[in-house]
Design a protein around this nucleic acid. Structure first.
Lengths: 344, 344
DNA sequence: CTGTTAGCGCCTTCAC
DNA sequence: GTGAAGGCGCTAACAG
């Protein structure tokens, strides 16, 4: 059976001290002599003492547990984010429990409840909606919370997100400079900040270059859904207005689009150009070569975790809004190679 | 601030009962009257009572937390597995904390320690080594543990794994029936059960058909590493013996192989056939079309979780060994289309 | 600086 | 069936 772990009491007995002194020594409390502290620490090491975090948590109200809500961590983007959050949290001795919401508010609610039950010290929401009652509730209760990747409409919550509209602007401008005019957009859900901001970036670029935005060429898909990219592309290609290029709101939709295009015996980029968003790992594969926009997910995870930890420690006075910079990754699907360098 | 939650004491006061009776009602203890039980339950609902799992855990020694060690959950295979484990555990009100070991024993050790600190009720190891001191230690201490996906050499531990050698046998036989003879193998690490078993399956098929195993065509790569598949393929293609087909030990290595092949201006499958293992999502993409072997990861996760829960509840008397069946998925990279149906 | 007392919220003897 | 008392392991408050 699991051998009984040595407790503070055991240490106290062995050291001929009171449990409180031992506790003080262990938590380098100011009011403890160097000597006894060193002694206790040595003894603790010898006797293989490991603090019982559960008991400690009961009195300190701290669990060193963080709750992470993502859309679905099977998605490489969220997997990477989760990993980065976990690594960062680990450096500060925090464990993180990730959980997939599938963008289902009911499920998210249940997860948050269960996280509260086990007493997590704070939350990271990586997939909130523009209007997110759950996040607002947490905020109301002064529960430490930071938003990553997606933000809410109301501004009074900490967040770390990519400059999505600028990313979309970059991509769209790039297509325009290559000479495309009828640029379709398969966007993300308009209930999310990423969905609307990427759309805004697209619109901005089009307007700036005086190009017409054709309603028929604007579709709304589901994030990370190849299926969604596939079916919407089929619809675009069989519609009245033929697009010359398609801007997909993420690389997985673009993968689906690629499938649809190839099924209709068209070629990327000769017959139709294609760009994605997020720079998924597969996008650089020679068989795919998707032009896209990349973001530093590592950074995203690290910054959101550090922010959360600051909130938890009460080191943050004002709400923090961090914007990350996107980078254009030019590969072949946009037709850069065949259309040559920019005229300008 | 976080509003104070109602406690058992609060309930007791409101109900005019003792905390013990309330506790009994809440945990449907036998020695409680139907009437008071119903009353307490009603009251609890009204007052929004939620048990404090930390406090409960302190006395019951249960945390309803499970520790999961995977190689790296950024890998789609492990992400899927993690998700399935989490979903299954969730049905029984268990939370699971996944953590990536990167196959680094030191890191794994640290993770296990930290998991013990927070008092997880059991472990799932999804990436153990054939000889795994950490798992053995846990076993010695009677800590609930089940192995998933990979198993140890010693048999006295519960596990749920794919029949890896049969999967490799299936793939290799398939290639042989298509007429290939010089079949190279890019295997996985021989320190893992999956690595050795897939190699064994390959050998079995080759021997059965009387084909020679050429040492030069046997390479040992890293799981899930495109880079590894890439570089080993380059080495194969520049070696003395030209392989007609390459069996990669997983789909990501195969993806890397595909990259190498394409860079050398060869075509899959016309110039060289290729098969993988695991049936990653991307493998069915029209640009990839990799022949591979699939396993029911969902099932793998579910069964290992249920087994662990049984161990935790003491419902398991003898160690359980579960073998899952692989399925051959024939696509285009093996040359099935161009070499037509089997002669037999 | 150290020891004593008390309690976090819950469950589990032990009496009745 | 129910209540009172004690304790899980730890830390915080109060004395000295």
């Amino acid at each position: 059976m699991k051998r009984k772990r040595t407790t503070v009491k055991d240490l106290a007995k062995a050291a001929g001290l009171s449990p409180s002194s031992v506790s003080r020594a262990l938590n380098n409390h100011p009011r403890i002599s160097k000597k006894t502290k060193a002694y206790v620490l040595k003894l603790a090491r010898e006797m293989g003492y490991k603090p019982n975090m559960v008991a400690r948590g009961l009195v300190t109200q701290k669990s060193f547990l963080l709750g992470l809500l993502v859309y679905d961590f099977r998605n490489p983007f969220y997997a990477e984010l989760t990993r980065s959050i976990q690594d960062t949290a680990g450096e500060y001795n925090f464990r993180v429990i990730p959980s997939s919401t599938d963008d289902d508010p009911e499920k998210a609610k249940l997860i948050v409840e269960s996280f509260k039950d086990i007493g997590v010290d704070g939350f990271i929401f990586a997939s909130c909606q523009l209007r997110d009652p759950l996040a607002e509730e947490l905020l109301d209760q002064d529960y430490p919370l930071v938003l990553a990747n997606r933000r809410m409409a109301k501004p009074d919550c900490n967040y770390v997100v990519l400059d999505n509209s600028y990313g979309a602007y970059l991509l769209t401008s790039h297509l325009i400079r290559l000479g495309y005019q009828r640029i379709a957009m398969i966007g993300g859900p308009r209930t999310t900040s990423t969905g609307v901001e990427r759309y805004q970036g697209y619109v901005e670029a089009m307007k700036e270059k005086g190009l017409e935005i054709i309603p028929e060429l604007i579709k709304e898909g589901l994030f990370f859904s190849q299926e969604s990219g596939y079916s919407l592309t089929k619809r675009l290609l069989t519609g009245n207005v033929q697009p010359e290029a398609i801007f997909c709101c993420d690389d997985y939709m673009a993968l689906g689009a690629m499938k649809a295009i190839s099924e209709m015996d068209l070629r990327v980029p000769q017959d139709i150009a294609l760009v994605g968003f997020d720079d998924a790992e597969i996008s650089s594969h020679p068989k795919i070569m998707l032009t896209t926009v990349s973001q530093d997910v590592q950074q995203l995870g690290m910054l959101s975790t550090k922010t959360l930890l600051q909130v938890i420690n009460g080191d943050l006075n004002e709400t923090q809004h961090i914007l990350l910079e996107p980078h254009l990754v030019i590969r072949e699907s946009c037709g850069y190679k065949i259309r040559g360098n920019y005229p300008n």
